[in-house]
Amino acid sequence: MNQIVPKSSLNFTKGGDALKHYTYKGDSGKDVNCYYCPNCTTHPYHQQTVMGPDTVIVRTGLLPEARKKFEVGAEIFGKDKMSWEKEIATTFDVLPPS
């Protein structure tokens, strides 16, 4: 579960300065910067340059309170879904149109 948020609203209370990152080309052909913990390899967020420099995608599913409070609004990158997975919301094969 992810949530798209302004980069300025992302604050780490612990460990944020230690995050490492790597970059790959997304489906758009533009860079995707993935940030991860060097100790446990958890990826708390990533930034897709196609969305602009001030927007990040936070893995809110890592937060216990988020799993209880946030309902699924859409499934993105359904093209990568396993055939046995059930659809739980409107599914987009890639990023939805803006």
Rank of each mutant, 00 (worst) to 15 (best):
M1T: 00
M1R: 01
N2T: 10
N2W: 05
N2S: 09
N2V: 03
Q3D: 04
Q3K: 04
I4H: 10
I4D: 00
I4Y: 09
I4S: 01
K7M: 03
S8H: 08
S9W: 03
L10K: 06
L10R: 05
N11M: 13
N11C: 14
F12L: 11
T13Y: 11
T13N: 12
G15V: 13
G16W: 11
D17Y: 06
D17N: 12
A18G: 02
A18P: 00
K20H: 15
Y22V: 08
T23W: 06
Y24S: 06
Y24P: 00
K25N: 15
K25C: 10
G26Q: 11
D27F: 08
S28H: 07
K30Y: 06
D31G: 07
V32C: 12
N33I: 09
C34W: 03
P38S: 12
P38T: 05
P38E: 06
P38W: 07
P38D: 12
C40D: 08
C40M: 04
T41K: 09
T41M: 09
T42Q: 06
T42P: 01
H43M: 02
Q48D: 13
Q48F: 10
T49S: 12
M51N: 07
M51S: 03
P53Q: 14
P53C: 03
P53W: 04
T55H: 03
V56S: 02
V56T: 00
V56G: 02
V56M: 05
V58F: 08
R59C: 11
T60H: 04
G61D: 06
L62P: 05
L62N: 04
P64V: 12
E65K: 03
E65F: 01
E65S: 00
A66E: 00
R67N: 14
R67P: 10
K68I: 10
K68F: 05
K69I: 03
K69M: 00
K69T: 07
F70D: 01
E71M: 04
E71K: 14
E71C: 11
E71F: 04
V72H: 06
V72A: 11
G73F: 10
G73R: 11
E75C: 04
E75Y: 00
I76P: 06
G78F: 01
G78P: 01
K79F: 02
D80N: 14
K81H: 14
M82I: 05
S83N: 15
S83E: 15
W84G: 05
W84R: 09
E85C: 05
E85G: 05
I88G: 05
T90G: 07
T90V: 15
T90R: 14
T91L: 04
D93F: 07
D93R: 04
D93L: 07
V94S: 14
V94L: 13
P96K: 06
P96A: 08
P96W: 06
P97C: 05
P97A: 03
P97Q: 12
S98E: 14
S98V: 11
